[in-house]
Nucleic acid binder design. Structure first.
Length: 120
RNA sequence: UCAGAUGGUCGGAUGAUCGCUGUUUCGGCAGAGGAAAGUCCGGGCUCCAGAAAACCACGGUGCCGGAUAACAUCCGGCGAGGGCGACCUCAGGGAAAGUGCCACAGAAAACAAACCGCCGUCUAUGACGGUAAGGGUGAAACGGUGCGGUAAGAGCGCACCGCGAUUUCGGUAACGAAAUUGGCAGGGUAAACCCCACCGGGAGCAAGACCAGAUAGGAACAUGAUGCCCUUUCGGCAAGGGAUGGUUUUCUCUCUAUGUUCGGGUAGGUCGCUUGAGGCGCGAAGGCAACUUCCGUCCCAGAUGAAUGGUCAUCCAACCGCUUAGGCGGCAGACAGAACCCGGCUUAUAGACCAUCUGACCCU
């Protein structure tokens, strides 16, 4: 299966918001939650009405999905849910800027996870 | 050439690369809009058992004829307004069935009535009577203009215009024309109630059907607990219930419990779900047209945290700035994303193109 699996349930999105580790950068917000199993990584994308009308929301979701297919398709960890949230400037950033933003967010989340494990 | 009117078409293109959904003969093939929008009308479809009908209530429509499955849509007419014109606009039945309302101003806002004025009479700075021609108010004052007439006036009389009635003619009709006649009925408002005619049952694809799962067709309370024929089943008759604005009638069908409360669970999968009042053709026939009939041809999105795309390059337009022009630089692609499906309406829309027509100006 080439693509990433998607998160079908609203419950899992709420779980990611409540318990996931999050990192907000310019252009997007990343949330990662460890499901604690060995299933493949799953992807969810959210674009609220703050982004704009339906056309703008769809465009933001498609750009984030393509971004995730490129970067998380290879590096996604087993058993984790990744949730990407579009922000007001998602459609204004250029493609390299958006790639940099996701890489930065991933690094930040990894760093905080390492700290968390080191402390406990 | 300029200014306009009407109708229609399109609404970024190409390539490279990485992907998604459906389908497949595993090579491929197909994959957002004219409005997909607002959810304002009309239908199909599904459920509320099916159908026919009456009265009341409520809602809608409202010139005439046609088109259509249907409509508040469309087409062709009529009437009334606007525009030099092409053409545009109209919630366009009834105000002599009844009720209500009409601010301010004004004497008076509607069974009529006299503030000023004008005229006449008398017991004369006044009173009584006549008078709607004049003044003034108003959006609107009991037909308008002119001549006659009169004490002054008045449709009091006459001519023309307006209005009503009747007749004739033209038209399927709305309506139009002509003639005769009535001295004039009598303000506006029906997107105020209302009257008249016609139409309308309700909820919606989270409709609805099936499967799986869950202590699982669970528990408590209230009311009613069904009669007759038949050995029993089946079946028949009767009673009651089963439409969802209210009441009622008729026929068919169906059920024998219904209602309330407590506890528990869930929007997991499959179907519905895309072949349809379908698209296309300068196809044929009929019609002024909307449209209808026939022929040929095509299959043209079916997703469900929801596909139909992301990125890059070149071009093409638009916008902004500079420039006499050529051109240069910047920004960045109008409105906007299917969710059961059709027919419309309304609203948003950068810009490009086509056809027909009108009015000016110039030339011949």
């Amino acid at each position: 299966m080439p693509g990433l699996a998607t998160i079908p349930k609203r419950r899992d999105f709420l779980l990611a918001t409540a318990k996931g580790r999050r990192s907000a950068v310019s252009g997007l917000v990343l949330q990662i939650v460890d499901r604690g199993d060995d299933a493949p990584p799953r992807l969810g994308i959210t674009a609220s009405r703050k982004i704009g009308n339906a056309v703008s929301r769809n465009r933001a979701k498609r750009r984030l999905r393509a971004l995730a297919q490129n970067m998380l398709g290879k590096d996604g960890q087993q058993g984790h849910d990744y949730v990407l949230i579009a922000r007001h400037n998602t459609n204004m950033l250029s493609w390299p800027e958006l790639e940099g933003a996701l890489a930065l967010a991933l690094d930040r989340v990894k760093a905080s996870a390492a700290n968390h494990q080191g402390n406990t």
